[in-house]
Write a protein that binds this DNA or RNA. Structure first.
Length: 345
RNA sequence: CCGCCCUUAGCUCAGACUGGUAGAGCAGUCGACUGUAGAUCGACUUGCCCCCCGUUCAAAUCGGGGAGGGCGGACCA
C-alpha cells in the first residue's frame, strides 16, 4: 500500500481532517505512525460509538499503531456523569464492548493497545504538565475548547475545564501522532495543536468522525431512548426503533437510517464481502440489491427506493452487524449489571 | 461563620400573599391521514408538590426545624 492509499484509508468517511498533508508526511517518514481515540466511560455504548470504532479497522489496515484510551477520570470530571465508585466497572464494560465492536467490524484487536486514564494521569510528569496548563489557560479559552463535549449547565463545575485541558495533554502523553474523535472534539484538539508545542511536544494531526443524526430527527440524544440503537437492543427493539425513525422519502438531511447504512452497515458488509438486500413486494418492483452506499442513496433520492421498503432491510442489516457485540455483552451480564446497577440489576 | 433566594409531572415553570389534597407548555403514549417516519389534527397518561414536626375540620400554600442547590458578605493572625 502506498502513502496515498494509506492516507485515503485513514481519511475516508470522515467529517474533517486537519491536515491531510500532515498525515501523508507521517506515512512517508514512518512505517507505523500512532493514533489514539478516547472514550469516557459514562452511559451505555450505542451505535454511534460503533461507527467510530468501525473506522479503527481502517486505521489498522492503513498500518497505524492504534491506542484506545478508556478515560475513566474524565467520566467523573464531566459533571460527575459516572460516580467515582462505578468508574472501574464502567471501564471494564467499555473495554469489552469496544473490543467486540472492533472485532465485529473486522479489525484486529490484537494490534490495538488499551490504556486507562488512571494508568498515567496520576503520574508526576502528567500532573506537572496539567498544573502548568491550568496556570496558563484562561477560563474562557478552556470553556470554548470544551463547549461541544462538556455537559453545559447553569452552574458549571471546574471539572469540565480540567477535563478539557487533560484531554489535550492525553494526546502527548499517549504519544499519538493522530488524534481521532467525533467532530464535537474539534475544539479540544485544536487547543492541543495550539498548546502542545509550547510544552515541548509535537503538534498532532486530527481526524474527525461525523456525528450521526438521531433516529427521531435532529441530534442523537442520550436522554432519548428512541433516538439511538443500543448495542444490546434485540432484533425487535432495533426493528421498532427503525420503524419509528424519521426518514422522509428522497431526503438525506438528518436521515439517521441512511447514515447508519453509510457509515456502519456498508463498510462492514464490504469488509465481509456481503451485499445489502432489500426485499420488496412485486407490486412495488420486487427485490433490490446494493454493493455500494452510493447506489442506494441514488435510488433513495430519485424515489426508486421507498423508505417503507428500506426500513425493514436496514433493521435486519443493523441487527446483523450488531449481533456479535450483543452476543458478547449478553454472555457476560454481570458486566452491565455492575456498570449500570440502576438499569441492569 | 453570617445573611438572602430557590426546591411542584421526564424537562421548563405557574399556583403560595387571599389554606379546600395541582395546572400549562414541551416531551411521551395511542388513534386518523400519508405505502415509513415526520408535519398536521384528535384523544390520553404522568406527581412521595425536597424531608420532618406543628397550627387547622382541612396544608403545595401558614409556623418551626432540617437537607440539597445558588448568590452575597464577613473573617483574613
Amino acid at each position: 500500500m502506498d502513502t496515498a492509499e494509506r492516507t485515503e484509508l485513514v481519511t475516508r468517511f470522515t467529517e474533517e481532517v486537519v491536515e491531510a498533508s500532515e498525515i501523508e508526511t507521517l506515512f512517508e517518514e514512518r512505517e507505523s505512525p500512532t493514533a489514539y481515540i478516547g472514550y469516557a466511560p459514562t452511559g451505555e455504548m450505542h451505535i454511534g460509538h460503533f461507527t467510530t470504532m468501525r473506522k479503527l479497522a481502517d486505521f489498522i489496515d492503513a498500518g497505524l499503531d492504534v491506542t484506545v484510551l478508556v478515560a475513566d477520570l474524565h467520566a467523573h470530571l464531566d459533571d460527575a456523569k459516572s460516580p467515582f465508585e462505578l468508574l472501574d466497572a464502567r471501564s471494564e464494560y467499555y473495554e469489552t464492548a469496544i473490543r467486540a465492536m472492533i472485532d465485529a467490524a473486522g479489525g484486529d484487536t490484537e494490534s490495538v493497545s488499551f490504556v486507562r486514564g488512571t494508568d498515567y494521569q496520576l503520574e508526576e510528569p502528567y500532573t506537572m504538565d496539567l498544573y502548568r496548563t491550568i496556570a496558563e489557560t484562561t477560563i474562557s479559552r478552556a470553556q470554548r475548547a470544551g463547549s461541544e463535549v462538556i455537559r453545559q449547565s447553569e452552574n458549571p463545575k471546574l471539572g469540565g475545564l480540567v477535563y478539557t485541558l487533560m484531554q489535550s495533554l492525553d494526546v502527548a502523553a499517549l504519544e499519538a501522532d493522530i488524534a481521532y474523535g467525533g467532530i464535537d472534539q474539534r475544539g479540544i484538539y485544536m487547543l492541543a495543536r495550539e498548546r502542545l508545542p509550547e510544552l515541548g511536544y509535537s503538534k498532532p494531526a486530527c481526524v474527525f468522525a461525523p456525528l450521526l443524526s438521531g433516529l427521531t430527527g435532529g441530534k442523537m440524544s442520550a436522554s432519548e431512548a428512541g433516538s439511538k440503537i443500543n448495542l444490546t437492543d434485540d432484533d425487535e427493539a432495533v426493528g421498532s426503533k427503525i420503524e419509528g425513525a424519521y426518514c422522509p422519502a428522497g431526503e438525506i438531511e438528518d436521515n439517521g437510517v441512511l447514515e447508519y447504512l453509510r457509515f456502519l452497515v456498508f463498510p462492514v458488509f464490504e469488509e465481509r464481502g456481503e451485499r445489502f438486500t432489500v426485499e420488496r413486494p412485486a407490486e412495488y418492483g420486487g427485490d433490490l440489491e446494493y454493493d455500494s452506499y452510493g447506489d442506494l442513496e441514488a435510488d433513495f433520492v430519485s424515489g426508486d427506493l421507498h423508505p417503507a421498503d428500506l426500513k425493514p432491510a436496514a433493521s435486519a442489516a443493523i441487527s446483523d452487524v450488531i449481533d456479535p457485540v450483543r452476543e458478547r455483552l449478553l454472555a457476560e451480564p454481570e458486566l452491565l449489571a455492575s456498570a449500570y446497577p440502576e438499569t441492569h440489576s
